[in-house]
């Protein structure tokens, strides 16, 4: 990942069985999925990064048959959340505020502390469903 490029030389020098720098999270996930599809028991998955990143990697791991209980994770960096809109099912990345706007359907969402591993996202529920427009002040909640 770009932010870590200054560590690249040091990491490469460790001579891992497979070392790969991905330009984006989606390309990394695709590559990881391919590597896991031919992997054997004994391979263990360790993930460090933001919450949204950890969630997406865990999903690739569990889709490959790894029990999430056996995946070791370490949170580093921003607390920004991936949020799944319960209404339109769209995922909004890098949500730092509560409430937040769904990037797909435009509803104002209350971001709940309710997390789905399968979707790798927190749940967002329309905050002004009862009285449209009655929205509390936006707070920087997840930095």
């Amino acid at each position: 990942m770009k932010g870590g490029s200054n560590h690249a030389a040091a990491l490469r020098a460790l001579n891992a069985a497979d070392y790969w720098e991905a330009p984006t999270i989606p390309t990394l996930l695709t590559r990881l999925g391919a590597a896991l599809s031919t992997a054997h028991m004994g391979l263990r998955l360790y993930v460090a990064g933001t919450e949204g990143f950890i969630g997406q990697v865990m999903k690739v791991g569990t889709d490959a048959g790894i029990s999430f209980l056996s995946i070791r994770t370490e949170h580093r960096g921003s607390l920004a959340r991936r949020v799944s809109c319960v209404h339109c099912k769209g995922i909004t990345e890098n949500v730092t505020t509560n409430p937040a706007t769904c990037s797909h359907c435009g509803l104002t969402l209350l971001v709940r502390d309710h997390y789905s591993r399968r979707i790798a996202a927190f749940q967002g529920v329309c905050i002004d469903a009862e009285v449209p427009g009655d929205v509390p002040p936006v707070e920087e909640a997840f930095r």
């Binding site: 209404h87 529920v125 329309c126 469903a129 009285v131 449209p132």
Partner: peptide, 13 residues
């Protein structure tokens, strides 16, 4: 359902 909350939520008012 929460899926349709934005449609039925106003009932509560």
């Amino acid at each position: 359902s929460p899926e349709n909350y934005h449609k039925w939520g106003k009932d509560r008012t």
